[in-house]
């Protein structure tokens, strides 16, 4: 199954400013907060939403979905026992991400 999501980066930035640290900690795991550039976080959020759609199930907490980058910078998603292939792009003030469940 696949999923996709599109995020308006400046709207996302507003949410970060409004919700502050409490918001960041609910949305992202500590390892995901390494790079705090807004467009990057917006891309991560889009990736998580894409994973939710690909998985066909919502998590209890957004932090159950973890996006990690391998040594070549390629993102992968993990949600429960399932793995997802992910791709993220940024352009024109938007971040977009596609997720696809990895079947053995």
């Amino acid at each position: 199954m696949i999923g996709v999501d599109l995020v308006n980066i400046s709207e996302f930035e507003q949410q970060i400013h409004l919700g502050g640290k409490a918001f960041l900690k609910k949305a992202f795991a500590t390892s995901e907060l390494q790079d705090q550039r807004v467009h990057h976080l917006a891309g991560l959020w889009a990736a998580k939403e894409a994973v939710i759609k690909a998985a066909g199930a919502a998590p209890q907490k957004m932090t159950e979905i973890i996006i990690v980058f391998d040594s070549s910078g390629r993102p992968h998603g993990k949600f429960g026992p399932e793995e997802f292939e992910i791709s993220i792009a940024h352009h024109g003030g938007y971040a977009i991400s596609v997720a696809c469940i990895v079947k053995e």
């Binding site: 709207e11 949410q15 918001f23 949305a27």
Partner: peptide, 13 residues
């Protein structure tokens, strides 16, 4: 979903 999370963060603060 994004704004709902912000709302939860705001009710905490």
């Amino acid at each position: 979903s994004l704004r709902r999370l912000t709302l939860i963060a705001l009710t905490e603060e």
